[in-house]
Simulated scan of single mutants.
Amino acid sequence: MEPQQNALSSEGVSQCLKLLSDPTRLLMMKLLADKEYCVCELTAIFDMSQPGISQHLRKLKNAGLVRERREGQWRYYAIHPSGPEYTLVRSILRQIDEKDGVLQTLRLKEVTVSCR
């Protein structure tokens, strides 16, 4: 049997699952899979402090799951579309039902948020 292209080690899969086992990070990744968000938008959507959101984003960024873009004083985050973890993460995120109550509540909050 040939190894899968971009296959992860057991340690890599374990680390990815560990990061996504946190409900906030899991839902954050679900949102980031669709579009880029500013830290202040995520703060309002998740009703969390900026340091709390930044801590989650730092863990995701350090693991290579999200990318950061700076624009002036603002920092924007999106899912990182490359690397071996991308396929695993997308597969996991597809398992979340779009009708999930928590996800729908977060998506409703995002409509009312503006950083500028």
Rank of each mutant, 00 (worst) to 15 (best):
M1G: 15
E2R: 14
P3C: 02
P3F: 04
Q4D: 07
Q4Y: 06
Q5N: 11
Q5F: 12
A7P: 06
A7N: 09
L8A: 08
S9M: 03
E11C: 10
G12K: 07
V13E: 08
V13L: 13
S14F: 15
S14G: 11
Q15N: 14
Q15K: 15
Q15G: 03
C16M: 14
C16F: 13
L17Q: 11
K18M: 12
K18V: 05
K18I: 06
L19F: 03
L20M: 09
L20E: 02
T24Q: 11
R25K: 12
R25V: 04
L26G: 06
M28R: 04
M29V: 09
A33Y: 08
A33W: 10
A33G: 03
D34C: 01
D34I: 00
D34A: 13
E36N: 05
E36Y: 02
E36W: 01
C38N: 12
V39E: 11
V39Y: 00
V39I: 14
T43F: 00
T43P: 00
T43L: 02
A44L: 05
F46C: 06
F46L: 08
D47R: 15
M48Y: 12
S49F: 06
S49C: 05
Q50P: 10
Q50V: 15
P51R: 01
G52Y: 07
G52L: 09
Q55P: 00
Q55G: 11
L57C: 06
R58C: 10
R58I: 12
R58A: 03
R58G: 06
K59Y: 11
K59S: 11
K59A: 10
K61L: 12
N62W: 04
A63G: 11
A63F: 04
A63N: 10
L65H: 03
E68I: 01
R69M: 00
R69F: 00
E71F: 02
Q73W: 00
Q73C: 00
R75D: 13
R75W: 01
I79H: 08
H80S: 13
H80M: 09
H80K: 09
H80G: 06
P81K: 15
S82T: 14
S82F: 12
G83P: 08
G83V: 05
G83E: 03
G83Y: 09
P84V: 04
P84W: 04
E85F: 09
E85M: 10
Y86M: 08
T87P: 01
T87Y: 06
T87S: 11
T87M: 07
T87G: 10
L88R: 07
V89I: 14
S91K: 13
I92F: 03
L93G: 09
L93D: 08
L93K: 10
R94Q: 15
I96K: 05
K99R: 15
G101I: 04
G101F: 13
L103T: 02
T105K: 01
R107K: 13
L108I: 02
L108A: 12
K109C: 01
K109A: 13
K109Q: 12
E110R: 14
V111H: 08
S114V: 10
S114W: 07
C115Q: 03
C115Y: 01
R116H: 10
R116L: 07
